[in-house]
Write a protein that binds this DNA or RNA. Structure first.
Lengths: 205, 205, 205, 205
DNA sequence: GATGAATGAGCTTTCATTCAT
DNA sequence: AATGAATGAAAGCTCATTCAT
């Protein structure tokens, strides 16, 4: 950020610009986002946009940064909501929560996931990763004190990405025949089985 | 395609253009694909490009179409290579094969997966979906004649997407700490457990 | 014309090209006429087109030249059809004939009149002018031997242009409320009065 | 118009762009009007052109719109200048005025009439039509209260088009032998006779 | 002669960014 | 600080014309 907004008005402006960027992305898609349009929606001049952000990229970074905080809050809110001790319940509710997040803000998050690699997602990735990892450790410590789980960070990397992108794909409209409920149940099933501790059966059938 | 290439030279040109597009995408990224650049790389004039393709989109579609055929061939080649009857072996080899595909052509396929939703992937999706579904049916008919599996198409939708995008993410460089072998093993584990037939244990721990 | 077509096949080709040009103009409009399209419609290669015509312009000139001959024939056919000695009848039939000409060939002539000044019309103008002038002289010599008419060439210049462009405008669709019959009758009335010989009434009312 | 010009400078720019378009058309012809050329002549960048006009077409429309206003003013100015009650005088002066208009602005109006059907002339047509119709009604009410004229709108459609296109043709250089005075006098004669009220003589001579 | 693949200048249009006010 | 007019490089695409086969 080019300039630390020190006055209240400036902070409002920065906030308005980020919000306008979000609106632009969710409404028109990432490709249609232009700085003049953002400024117009924010009710601000382009010049001002460039007073607070080095370039378009910086603006989007700020948006993702903001989004990261929101996601953290969402995750925290999620774990307080979960009361059950059932792994299945926890997973299922998490997935449902994820679907609702992806639908929020007119699909802003969906658009972000779709354009994942074009956006500076590193921080959000890290946060989600470490959050779910912490949660996982907590959970497994609580229920399986005796033996720690191998490769927990790998497992959660896989789970998080599988879930996220499968949800995204299922929401992207091309797969008409599959209901969100089916996705939720089956994803849940997959993850739960994956995380269960007993030795897998011999794999040769 | 605007004009059916009738002479050998034309076919070479069409091929060169598609190849140049592939090169552009894999080398510079999808955003840097411009018709002048493609033409230049193909060693051809812009006009020639438009003799054979209605527009840039058509060129990319042709590339994806080509890719779809290659993927089909790759999948067919894959199933002939698999000798084991072990589900684990099959899954593991498939994933390894997938990784090798994603690395092919200077990462063209990786770039394609990254830009999934900006590309006309419908056909490739269909092909992969139906191929894996057929394969799955075959496999389960062979080994579990007595009971068919519920929601097989949902399961494979989840498996295909989870695997594809998890591999893509793991290859995207941001996750330095996780080895491809770990991903392969854990993904395999997840999928195998998911597809195993016995009733899941009670989920409340 | 670059080359005198001496062989029968060449003449057919020239004819086919001119016809294709006519078709192109009447079907797609003058702006949409492209040499590749003409060649394609003529069933001939672009190269051949340029074997017989220096450039696009030359092709269009040939078309207009052809058209000029057709118009001459049409005019000759017109005067043989006219049996009445009534000036009004002659004018009216001429106008009706003109309307039918403008509608011929899918509106080719209409398109030509619309694009009058972008086309090499000199020859057709001359022919029409001199033809109508001859006819006028003949007519007036027959009926008013005693006194020749002043400014006959000016009068016919005015009459021909007025009629032609008024017809064109009335056919161009924007003047929904005026029927072709009204146009015909009123134009006839105007021309007949104009050509009548008695001294006009004092013009101050 | 894409953007309402809010500052004085912007209005100057819009004006400069329209003027440059006019200059382009009158100097090089409608076909040579390109956005880079217009911008260059206006002393402005292409980008600026597109800040104020959606596209080339919009620019031309604005020019025609401007022209329409000028024509209206010209017509109003014309009727105030006419003092005579003589129909002949009125017509003659109108035609002379028309010639002077067509010559104005380096022949811009002449070029517009030449390219009539390629330009969005509807509004100008309407204005000219209704203006001349109003004037005609007024005139005939004043002088021939007893009987209204049949088909006045048809008559004026014919008169306006005949005059306009005949003038245009006579100015287009191809008709070397006919002086503008001759055109003026004969056109006047034709129109005056046309509008005179007595029953036409029997038309068979 | 005939072909049609190949050319490339040039057009319309967009948009991130700057800078005079 | 704020504005928004102005920029101009660069994109996608067309089509009259040429020339190797």
């Amino acid at each position: 950020m080019r300039k630390r907004p020190q006055q209240e008005r400036s902070q409002q402006m920065v906030a308005a610009l980020i919000e306008a960027t979000a609106l632009c992305i969710s409404k028109y898609g990432l490709d249609a986002v232009t700085t003049p349009k953002i400024a117009e929606i924010a009710g601000v001049s382009v010049g001002s946009l460039y007073q607070y952000f080095d370039d378009k990229q910086a603006l989007i970074e700020a948006l993702i940064e903001n989004g990261t905080h929101e996601v953290v809050k969402a995750l925290q809110s999620l774990i307080t909501q979960i009361e059950s001790d059932s792994l299945e319940e926890i997973v299922k509710q998490s997935i449902q929560y994820g679907f609702s997040l992806l639908r929020q803000s007119d699909g802003l998050y969906l658009e972000i996931v779709k354009n994942w690699h074009r956006l500076p997602m590193q921080k959000m990735v890290d946060v989600m990763q470490s959050f779910s990892l912490d949660f996982g450790r907590l959970f497994f410590t609580k229920h399986y004190q005796t033996h720690s789980i191998q490769n927990l960070h790998v497992k959660f990397f896989i789970i998080v990405n599988s879930t996220l992108f499968t949800m995204m794909q299922s929401m992207s409209g091309q797969n008409a025949m599959i209901s969100q409920d089916d996705i939720t149940n089956e994803l849940t099933d997959m993850i739960v089985r994956y995380l269960q501790q007993e030795d897998p059966k011999p794999l040769v059938v």
